[in-house]
Amino acid sequence: MPYKYIGRTTDFKGKSLWEIVGNLKNFGVGRMVVRSRFERYPEKSYMKILKVETLPNPEKPSIDDMRFVKVWVESTFRGKTFPEPIVIERTSYKTDFRLIPKDEEQEYCKSPVFDCTKIVPKTMEFPPLLKELLIRNAKAKGNSLEEEIKLEIFYNKQSLNTSYKIAKDGEKPTVEIVSGLGKPVSPRLYEGLK
């Protein structure tokens, strides 16, 4: 008979950490687990189990308290490995962990190839008042404004490696960054507005 779940739904997917390590030889030291919440990022996040300690039974054991376990892991979050091991204890009860089979570990760890097809503009318009001020200041100083002044856009350095690249001279950006509404993703959302 198929399961029929009742009650509130959850974003978690998987088992609690004790359900996984309790069933493994040597408590799964050396194996790889992932949190399904972190699988939404394009970069890979995973944890390698280094050491496992069980915890004493609580005084009043309930179904929620009995799921805790203390696990030291070498954690990689969004492609970056932390230098120090991380202890998972308070979050070990979350039924959000998934064990990666040994033969799939290598494949899972491979960082995906990012296609930086998104080209972002290098500069954008100043806010109108600031622009007016800057023009006045420049004129007061006697500078001639041959070309229009533009604000240079400051991008996140990490995202530049993975998600997009800045337009070079003469290159046409694929996205626009403006201070107003800009070009909507779907014009349907703005229908009927005055």
């Binding site: 954008m124 806010p127 600031l130 604000l151 240079e152 856009i153 400051f154 991008y155 960054i177 403006v178 201070s179 509404l181 800009g182 909507p184 993703v185 779907s186 349907r188 959302l189």
Partner: peptide, 24 residues
């Protein structure tokens, strides 16, 4: 999905502009 994307776009634009201004 489209509403989410639209709000994300507006939010990203706003943050990028503010960050750029601060940096400027």
């Amino acid at each position: 999905e489209e509403e989410k994307l639209e709000l994300q776009r507006l939010h990203n634009n706003y943050r990028t502009q503010m960050k750029s201004l601060r940096y400027y």
